[in-house]
């Protein structure tokens, strides 16, 4: 499968990564290369093989339902370009 320039532009937009128009052909080429490599893996017969979800024999760690975090509005907002009255302030987004 190959990625054309339009698809590369769209994927970049969805991920909110700014890519200059002149860089798109090279990017599309690289993405196509990655997919081609992935397609090679499809040649391996994996019938009856469970997908591997981790490299260590671990189980998902679970937490108790106890409040242990939060109450640090100042720290949460510290990196915000704009914050007002305890809220993040962003350019207006209305449906």
């Amino acid at each position: 499968m190959s990625i054309d320039i339009d698809t590369a532009r769209r994927v970049a937009h969805l991920a909110r990564i700014r890519v200059q128009e002149e860089d798109l052909p090279a990017l599309a080429g690289e993405l196509s290369g990655i997919l081609t490599f992935m397609e090679q893996l499809n040649e391996v017969d994996v019938d009856g093989v469970e997908p591997m979800t981790g490299v260590t024999p671990m189980r998902l760690k679970r937490r108790e339902d106890v409040v242990t975090d939060g109450n640090m509005q100042d720290k949460i907002l510290k990196n915000a370009p704009d914050a007002r009255e305890g809220f993040f302030a962003v350019p207006k987004v209305v449906e």
């Binding site: 937490r63 339902d65 242990t68 975090d69 939060g70 509005q73 305890g86």
Partner: peptide, 20 residues
């Protein structure tokens, strides 16, 4: 009491960005 993947509170009506 707490969120799905963190230990912050789920209480409604708290100060903005305090249960984070």
């Amino acid at each position: 009491n707490a969120k799905l993947f963190s230990g912050a509170s789920t209480a409604f009506g708290a100060e903005p960005n305090s249960n984070v």
